[in-house]
Amino acid sequence: MQNIMLFPKNILFDLGGVILNLDIPRTMACFKSLAGSEEEFNRIFGLLAQEEHFERFERGQISADDFLARFVDLAKRPIDKAQAKMAWNAMLLDLPAQRINCLQKLRAKGHRLFLLSNINEIHLEEVRKIIREQHGALDFDGLFEKAYYSHEIGRRKPDIATYQWLAEDAGILAQDTLFVDDNADNIKGAREAGFWAQLHLANTDLERAMANYLK
Results as ranks from 00 to 15, higher is better:
115 L>V: 05
44 I>C: 09
209 A>K: 00
71 F>Q: 03
114 F>M: 02
103 L>P: 10
206 L>R: 02
32 K>E: 15
95 L>G: 02
58 E>L: 00
195 F>H: 03
123 H>D: 02
65 D>N: 00
141 D>L: 08
121 E>T: 01
86 M>D: 15
146 K>F: 05
61 Q>L: 05
27 T>A: 12
60 G>Q: 06
207 E>Y: 11
193 A>V: 03
196 W>Q: 14
135 H>P: 04
28 M>N: 10
166 L>N: 06
58 E>F: 00
146 K>A: 01
71 F>S: 09
44 I>A: 06
84 A>C: 10
130 I>T: 07
21 N>I: 13
8 P>L: 15
152 E>Q: 13
157 K>H: 04
102 C>M: 08
167 A>H: 02
77 R>I: 04
203 N>T: 05
29 A>E: 01
45 F>I: 03
90 A>Y: 09
108 A>N: 10
135 H>T: 08
140 F>Y: 12
209 A>E: 12
185 D>E: 13
28 M>R: 07
73 D>H: 10
171 G>V: 08
180 V>Q: 11
46 G>R: 00
74 L>N: 08
99 R>W: 05
162 T>V: 07
80 D>N: 10
200 H>K: 00
142 G>Y: 11
2 Q>S: 09
115 L>S: 05
127 V>C: 02
43 R>Y: 08
136 G>T: 02
173 L>S: 15
88 W>M: 03
184 A>N: 04
65 D>C: 06
21 N>W: 06
192 E>Q: 00
141 D>F: 14
62 I>L: 13
203 N>L: 12
23 D>V: 12
96 P>H: 14
12 L>C: 06
102 C>V: 07
105 K>V: 03
31 F>M: 05
83 Q>W: 13
122 I>T: 07
212 N>D: 10
31 F>T: 04
203 N>D: 13
81 K>T: 14
51 E>W: 01
87 A>S: 11
16 G>F: 13
104 Q>F: 09
209 A>C: 04
67 F>K: 01
127 V>H: 07
115 L>A: 05
143 L>A: 14
156 R>N: 04
90 A>P: 00
64 A>K: 11
17 G>T: 13
30 C>I: 02
130 I>N: 07
74 L>R: 07
166 L>R: 07
68 L>S: 15
62 I>G: 11
